[in-house]
């Protein structure tokens, strides 16, 4: 499994490098292989299909323009792509922040704490390792970190959703992040 995954990662890296020299075929191939993953991430954050489509479009136009700055020594292609897609989704969410705060329905959504497919043979070693470290956190803190990551919510929004004071949410998340770093960097 991890051999397949490694080959896939290397192929994506290679595609991104080719896109850096304006190879349109490589661009089409990269889109074919990664757009469903990226769209899933955008859609989960934005919860609106047409907004997610716009962000996906922005993401890939940026990929085309910035591929030449992709440095495989610094990040894998998929990390680079996911980072772009998440950053653009979060920026979009922040633009709408005031509307969201005015809309109690959006804040009332239940925290995202779906069972994770950690046992899935298909997740990478990196994911399994991260999952192992997340499992060491207190359940509420773990669920806050996951909610934050998948929805792109601010501290304020998270505190409201989880019905805890802002200070509590901040300390949960910060403590979790430090714990995760210690666990992952071992």
């Amino acid at each position: 499994m991890s051999a397949t995954r490694t080959i896939e990662q290397q192929e994506l890296n290679q595609l991104l490098i080719e896109i850096g020299s304006e190879d349109q075929k490589a661009f089409a191939e990269l889109y074919k292989r990664t757009s469903s993953k990226l769209f899933g991430v955008c859609l989960r954050m934005l919860r609106d299909r047409s907004e997610a489509e716009e962000v996906l479009q922005e993401t890939y136009t940026t990929v085309w323009r910035r591929a030449s700055s992709f440095n495989v020594a610094k990040a894998s292609a998929i990390t680079w792509l996911m980072t772009l897609a998440r950053n653009k989704s979060i920026d979009r969410l922040r633009q709408h922040r005031e509307e969201q705060l005015d809309d109690p329905l959006k804040l009332d959504e239940t925290p995202d704490d779906q069972p994770t497919p950690a046992g899935h043979a298909e997740t990478s070693q990196a994911h399994q390792r991260l999952q192992g470290c997340l499992d060491e956190l207190e359940p509420q803190q773990r669920s806050s970190v996951r909610e934050a990551f998948f929805t792109g919510a601010t501290y304020n929004e998270l505190a409201t959703r989880c019905k805890v004071p802002l200070g509590t949410m901040k300390s949960w998340i910060r403590r979790s992040l430090m714990q995760l770093r210690t666990c992952l960097d071992q």
Binding site: F39, G40, V41, L56, H127, F149
Partner: peptide
């Protein structure tokens, strides 16, 4: 990013509509 991005593996893939690719092509 390296530490946290593996979480995106959990997100369910959703295929975008075909016109998104066409728009990207047009935009570029």
């Amino acid at each position: 990013q390296q530490r946290l991005m593996p979480l995106t593996e959990e997100v369910v893939e959703v295929e975008p509509a075909a016109y998104v690719w066409a728009r990207i092509h047009h935009a570029l």
